[in-house]
Design a protein around this nucleic acid. Structure first.
Lengths: 216, 216
DNA sequence: TTAAAAAATGAGTGATTACTCACTTTACAG
DNA sequence: CTGTAAAGTGAGTAATCACTCATTTTTTAA
């Protein structure tokens, strides 16, 4: 439970048996795709960066696109896995009495994930609009499975009287917008000293719960 | 005041005098860049789609990148212009008594803009991570000018007692996250019949004002 | 009507692209 | 050791890339 978040490591170790050269190819490809974009990265460049002959790439991956997909797929499958697939059901009835506490844990969890997998995440976001395979995977893994789970979670807290009545899809959208907005801005400005992270997290949670209007 | 939002038309008509062929090049380039991405689009493809010789492109634009920038720059400059540069100051003290009304107008305004300029907007978002010139322009036009104006607007409504006390930057971030989240999801699912647009707009505004917690 | 300027052309440039394949090296079971 | 399969190689492929330039067509103005 220490560093299950490092998807790169996870893929390099667990999955199938990868040769040393193959690992180097993956690492080099992630770096280049993230920096320059998929289409603007050449296979010769990846080979050079990986210290490998260009032919070696095509021994393991039939095409350049297949290399991309082999990198991005595990992120898809695990993007929200720690909470969703493993823990969400427990969370639902046991762990968090208050929705606010769930939000806090959620933000912390996804923040770590994003930090640990920023390069791969960036590739994913960049290429989804152009790669139909990726879009399908995304809809399958994220949009359907994950979103459905969150909807149920919202309904749970609605039943408890902590969340107002509205379609659960809308509630998920609104909360997710705020959290994703926080995560993205934190990933850009998080290192600056004007950014008070603790405070911003609390403001985000407070905002999701109570908005920004003055109570009277 | 009818269709000032169509940036493409605006560029093609107003700006400098463009030849017919040049207009066709711009239209073809926007289409291809939006569909396949900048790096994956070839100049020969643009020329063919525009019904123009490839050399004609390079008569007007020194490089392919210059073509990209000439397309995206006006969007930058005008992305939030209608509200910001032209109307925001008036709005500030006169038009909207309540912050909620401002939000409503804001959402409607930006929704139209996005709908009318979706292809160019997509290109902008896609290429900002890879084109330093675009990033600079973005910081100059959007991040600084626009964000500063919004911050002032928030402070105005804080002074009126309609928004709780918090750093104005944080309030802008939170409200903008909710609005942008709405706009993006609307641009994807907005055509489906499960999407009740009026209701989602109101929920978004209500969320920004009061969050999703049950009042008691 | 004409001459100069601007716009447009498309064949041609060398560089680079993703990918192939005959070959060599390495790993390992019997 | 030996044989076999997998891993790795890098020169070579045709296609495509962004871009050039000598030439032709169109526009403009006197």
């Amino acid at each position: 439970m220490t560093e299950e978040d490092l998807i790169l490591q996870q893929v390099l170790n667990e999955e199938e048996e990868l040769t040393e050269k193959q690992k180097k190819i993956i690492i080099a490809a992630i770096e280049s795709f993230s920096e320059k974009g998929f289409a603007a990265t050449s296979t010769s460049e990846i080979a050079k960066k990986a210290g490998v002959a260009e032919g070696t790439i095509f021994r393991h991956y039939k095409t350049k696109k297949e290399l991309l997909i082999s990198i991005v797929t595990p992120v898809m499958a695990k993007l929200l896995a720690p909470f969703i697939i493993k823990d969400l059901n427990k969370v639902l009835d046991r762990d968090f009495e208050k929705f606010e506490d769930f939000l806090r844990a959620m933000i912390e969890n996804r923040k770590k994930f994003l930090k640990n997998n920023f390069a791969i995440f960036k590739i994913l976001v960049q290429e989804i609009p152009f790669q139909p395979e990726l879009r399908e995977q995304f809809l399958e893994h994220i949009a359907k499975k994950t979103f459905g789970r969150f909807a149920k979670l919202v309904e749970h807290y609605q039943a408890k009287g902590q969340i107002i009545e509205m379609p659960s899809a809308s509630a998920v959208r609104l909360a997710a917008s705020a959290i994703i907005g926080y995560l993205l801005i934190n990933s850009v400005f998080g290192s600056g000293k004007e950014w008070d992270d603790e405070a911003e997290i609390e403001r985000t949670i407070e905002f999701i719960m109570h908005g920004i209007s003055k109570k009277e």
